[in-house]
Amino acid sequence: MIRDITLGQYIPGKSFIHRLAPRVKIILTFVYIVFIFVASNFEGLLTMSVLILGILLLSGVPLSQYFKSLKAILFVVIFTSVLNLFYGGGNVLWSWGFIQITSGGVANAVFVTIRIISLILFSSVLTFTTSPTELTDALERIMKPLKLLHVKVHEIAMMMTIALRFVPTLLEETDKIMSAQKARGADMESGGLMQRIRALIPILIPLFVSSFRRAYDLAMAMECRCYHGGEGRTKMKVLHATSLDAVAVVVSLVVCAAVVACNLYFPAVLH
């Protein structure tokens, strides 16, 4: 049961989006997210939404997967849209005591909801179509300039790789420890919040101890395989940008320009 949790949720495939260079995907996702917030009216946001829809269909990932990731943040969406309902001016549509809902409020709520949903969909596309190793490799390349500021870029990327590699291993271990503690009579399902948190201690302590042991073993195995940091290291997979990436960049530029144009010609929704 606990093993079903997958981090990154990479869904292998050969679609246009899958084949884009990971570096390009990360940067474009970042740009899109910025532009979701740059768009200040429905026209601009609509342009972004069309782009998302196109990307979703191109990704070849079943749409149900995207719904699943939206379901996870359903609460956040409802919470923020309800809060926004009470902001903004315009005609009063409904009032009860000092609480009143205005047309501006409704527009705000819808606007913010679309923003959040777009945000989630864009980041989902990235994690669904890019393998964790591709992601960390690409991040290492993107962050390379930070080396000048003495940021240990290679070490950070290596830590991410190892963390991702050990997520399933540690989940499996947690499962085992939980069963072992239950077999000894540990009660993890009943009692109040504090009691349940306290019940986690007999799981966390063995988990920590074994993680340190694993870390020691792994460090030794890495040294045995001549690991000595990023210096002089090569990569088996060299990431090349292709003409597909050029197409993606051009399309993105057009969309971003359209968003800016919408901002200039139409009035903003949020004040």
Binding site: S131, T133, T161, R165, R214, D217, T234
Partner: peptide, 29 residues
């Protein structure tokens, strides 16, 4: 090669793990 096979694999994909050693040695791609 150590005892626990789980603790000596570095990467999340088999072929990338096998490549770890030669990558450290600076072998061409």
């Amino acid at each position: 090669v150590l005892q626990n096979p789980d603790n000596q694999l570095v990467a999340s994909v088999v072929e990338e793990d096998v490549a770890f050693g030669p990558e450290n040695l600076g072998v061409p791609p």
